[in-house]
Write a protein that binds this DNA or RNA. Structure first.
Lengths: 363, 363
DNA sequence: TCCCGTGTTGCAAACGTTTCCAGTCAAGAG
DNA sequence: CTCTTGACTGGAAACGTTTGCAACACGGGA
């Protein structure tokens, strides 16, 4: 410390003209130019301006040119709210996300937004914080906003509000890595099972028998699907699975941390660990660090899902990879299809085991 | 490979009822219940329903109770588009972001969205991909959507479109870490200079003289402000700065990588490196890895901005820290203030040097 | 008894578009 | 020369709300 004086000395940003006397910026003052003024200045009917600007065919070249000139001159920008009300289409997609803190979602949301924007749609993101009440409110909010479609990564597949929000006639829906029986919605599903099968088989072939598996609860598809691949790998190798080494129940780091601690204390201790998702990865790696166990040496470690930040620093971590950006793009395409009136469909994204240093050792 | 058969075998998700014959889901079919039907069923006027539901004082208890019951019964959900058109308020904030790929923005956007939602606002995120043409289009889009306010992390402070987008009467604006002269907008500015000054002073005291600095171009406030702290630290220590060790010009990893390579080849080589931002951190750390230089041993390293993923794996990296979530919250509060008609103001967020292992060594 | 405020309700005009319908005009067909 | 056709244009209704204003009933004071 003792730097306080300096901090203050450096603290004058200067350059922002903060307090102008008029506060015209407030929500009111704002006289925006409407189609009516364009029509008046061009001395034509409202309807003609509308047609000229919206590309309607029944407009003479002269009319279109003239209206466009005057619209530009006045700086006319159509009111999307009014257009939406009249046309019944908002050109907006709602994106309901379970937990935007998960860095994979930033990537996914970005590629999705990109694709949507290229098609003239905007995206409203609402975060449920892993809470089904919030999620329910978010669905309601998006309906009130009359979004043209919803892309959703649900908190759980058995929330009591789900039927209300997903059933019946409504705007198209795309589920991200979720299976809900009996509703008609599109979905992007990752084929986790294949990648996990590959990964576990690799471990088994390397001699591992005590393989721990820590991941979130099985009320969502990814957990069940990973479990499928996990189980099948043992079956195919004709080896007994070790249910006592599995902790299936929480996506948060705390859950993973505490269960990893317990598992690492067992005797015999697991020789390999699979961590499913962002939270599990954080929790497990913290537990290993606590016990000064180095992954790739004393224990083999595989992360399910290649989280974006891994590329930067922990580029030695073996992962089950799926193309997150492709998932985002695909979700956008499915929702666009749905709004075009096409039938819902499921799109499968493959996954694959990527071997790096961390999955060695341990035996 | 050779697992193809398995992959296919595992590939049947089952459980999603995909192709129902009716595709009621499309944009049309959708007869939503309006205020008119509520009024009809309750046998009162439209206006009474509106008043009853919106909390208007001139409504009898009986009327309010009855209308609410019937609205619930019919599952009435007000049309926000119509409300917006009539009232002139959309309860929507636009969030213009330079590059949503930067993981700090996920955090920032999340805390901001949280705060806004608690106040009844939704957030529309638009990404400029570091391109000023996109940014300009994004501003226009948000204006057409009649958002009540815009929070923006500008690509550059001297884009030719800026005046048009920021000047004149318009909805309130909050700039994130940007200074634009002559306009009246709120801003959240981080006090990078203080943290950088602390960090550099620490290096100088440890004996470093050849301190390299790699960061983005100085057409944005953070670079200039960091530079301020950097320069001042040398001045205060009465030591000559080494401009030839500074690479100020690009936020992307490629720029940082190539310049780090060059700098590391100099003779004498820098004994310490500061990396400003996500891209710089990635580029520099890759360059070090290439040359098998370990940070904290052969070279001292400090990252400007504690990026979220660092906590997980590279928890030995010294950083200049600022509270990203606080920035998001503060941005939300400033925009809410602005919509309340209050004058724009600037909010300063402090930063501080956090010493860890990576800033040792090198001398 | 009359008048007036008060508390409540209904009517109708906006908000800024799109789109249906009817009308105009000129050109070509009969 | 008249009729039809086609290309274009203008008028007005509608989308679902909110809100200013008028109307009404009721009770109390003069």
């Amino acid at each position: 410390m003792g730097e306080i004086g300096l901090a203050i000395a450096l603290k004058s940003p200067g350059g922002l003209e903060v307090a102008s006397e008029k506060s015209e910026t407030s929500r009111s003052g704002n006289q925006r130019v409407t189609i009516r003024e364009v029509a008046a200045k061009a001395e034509v009917a409202l309807s003609s301006v509308s047609r000229a600007l919206s590309g309607h065919p029944d407009v003479s070249d002269e009319m279109r040119k003239r209206v466009k000139e005057i619209a530009d001159e006045l700086g006319y920008e159509p009111n999307l709210v009014a257009q939406s009300l009249r046309s019944g289409v908002t050109r907006t997609i709602g994106f309901v996300v379970r937990d935007i803190n998960n860095p994979m979602f930033a990537l996914l949301a970005r590629s999705c937004e990109n694709e949507l924007r290229r098609n003239g749609y905007s995206m409203i993101i609402v975060n449920s914080d892993g809470n089904i009440e919030n999620e329910n409110r978010n669905f309601s909010l998006l309906r009130r906003r009359r979004v043209d479609g919803i892309i959703a990564s649900l908190v759980s597949e058995d929330s009591p509000y789900l039927r209300k929000n997903l059933e019946g006639p409504r705007s198209p829906i795309v589920l991200l890595d979720r299976e809900v029986k009996g509703i008609s919605a599109s979905a992007v599903l990752a084929d986790h099972a294949a990648g996990v099968h590959e990964a576990v088989t690799h471990l088994i072939n390397a001699g591992h028998r005590e393989i721990a598996f820590i991941t979130g609860s099985n009320n969502v598809y990814p957990t069940r699907n990973r479990l499928l691949g996990f189980t099948k790998a043992f079956e195919d190798a004709n080896i007994e699975m070790r249910p006592d080494l599995m902790a299936i129940g929480g996506f948060d780091a705390e859950y993973a941390l505490s269960h990893a601690r317990i598992l690492l204390h067992r005797n015999p201790a697991p020789t390999a660990i699979l961590a499913g998702g962002h939270g599990a990865l954080m929790g497990v790696s913290r537990a290993l660090k606590e016990k000064k166990i180095t992954m790739g040496k004393e224990i083999a470690f595989i992360a399910l899902d290649q989280l974006p930040y891994l590329e930067v620093f922990s580029d030695n971590i073996s992962t089950v990879y799926r193309d997150t950006e492709a998932i985002g793009r695909e979700a956008a395409r499915l929702i666009l299809e749905g709004m075009d009136g096409e039938k819902p469909r499921v799109s499968l994204i493959e996954s694959q085991f990527i071997e790096r240093a961390s999955s060695q050792g341990g035996i």
